[in-house]
Simulated scan of single mutants.
Amino acid sequence: MGSCCGDQCCSPPPTGSGWFRRALWVALAVNALMFLVEIGAGIASESSSLQADALDFLGDAANYGVSLFVLGMSLRRRAAASMLKGATMAAFGLWVAGNTLMHAMAGTVPEAPVMGAIGVLAFMANVGVAVMLYAFREGDSNMRSVWICSRNDALGNVAVMAAAGGVLASQSGWPDFAVAAIMAALALSGAFQVLGHAWREWRT
């Protein structure tokens, strides 16, 4: 962490060297791989929550790439990158909401066993990334955004596993739709957090 004046950091933390850069590369690779796994499973099982989670993995992989690109830049430029990531998270949340509504109107019933198995795999991947990034949760908006992404993903995976059990028990798609709606809310909440923190850094 850099030195601070009151509640404002006067110098950015040394994010361009060492652990944070390596952690971002690992996170990027994990998210890109899980996107390919989940999008295939989501389409095959007709699960709204799996497809939403797959696109979340893709968005996170892109966000980690942006974070790597801005490492070592000024705080203002990193804040601008965080604003872009926050806007991406918000767009994801809105897409998930629309996609969920479409499947709810169609009455789609996804395949619960596929949902459960892929949900467990995705949860393990996200917990690993979240643990790796935990040390950076109190950094600048760029660091906070990658932590928030990984945290939200792990919570979303727990919800997907719960939805799989609900679909299996009820033979209805509504548990899947409910979880997809929760994931949309998580994405929008995280987006507001990232945008708010980045805006304060930008003004500073």
Rank of each mutant, 00 (worst) to 15 (best):
A106P: 09
H103A: 12
G98P: 04
Q171G: 14
A79E: 00
A125V: 05
M124L: 13
L71S: 01
L168A: 15
V114N: 03
L94P: 00
G86W: 02
V160F: 05
A163W: 09
T100M: 11
P110E: 11
N142P: 00
N63F: 08
V114I: 13
A79F: 01
L168F: 15
A125Y: 07
A54H: 03
V66A: 01
A104N: 10
M102C: 11
M161H: 02
G119H: 09
W95V: 08
N99A: 15
M115F: 13
S49I: 05
R78I: 01
S150H: 00
G166D: 07
A154G: 07
V160S: 02
R76V: 10
L155Y: 09
G98Q: 10
L168M: 13
A52N: 03
G93K: 14
R77Q: 12
A117T: 11
S170I: 02
V109F: 07
A164K: 06
M105L: 15
D56R: 15
A125E: 03
R144V: 14
S145D: 02
I148S: 01
L121P: 00
L168D: 07
G116Q: 12
R77A: 09
A169V: 10
F57L: 06
S141E: 02
M161C: 12
S150P: 00
A154K: 04
F57T: 03
A62S: 13
R76D: 11
Q171I: 12
S172I: 04
D153S: 13
A79M: 00
E138V: 05
S141P: 00
S172T: 05
S67I: 00
I118C: 07
V146L: 04
M105K: 14
A135V: 13
V146C: 06
M143I: 04
N157T: 06
L75Y: 04
L84W: 09
G107H: 02
A61V: 12
F92K: 12
D140E: 07
Y134C: 07
R144L: 12
V70I: 11
L71N: 02
I148K: 03
L101F: 14
V146T: 13
N63S: 15
A91T: 09
A52D: 05
N152F: 04
F123W: 13
M132F: 01
D153W: 08
A52Q: 02
A104Y: 10
I148D: 01
A162P: 04
A80V: 15
V70K: 02
G72N: 00
A80R: 10
L71K: 03
M83I: 13
E138P: 02
G59L: 07
M89S: 12
A52R: 03
F123L: 11
P113T: 07
I148E: 03
G165A: 15
A125L: 04
M132Y: 00
G156S: 08
D60Q: 15
C149M: 09
P110W: 14
A125R: 06
F92M: 13
D56V: 02
Y134F: 15
W95R: 14
L155K: 10
A130P: 01
F57A: 09
S49N: 06
S150N: 04
A91H: 11
N157C: 12
V120R: 11
A135Q: 10
S141T: 04
A164E: 00
L50N: 03
A122T: 05
A52Y: 04
M132I: 07
M143S: 10
S172P: 05
G59E: 00
G65E: 01
V109Q: 09
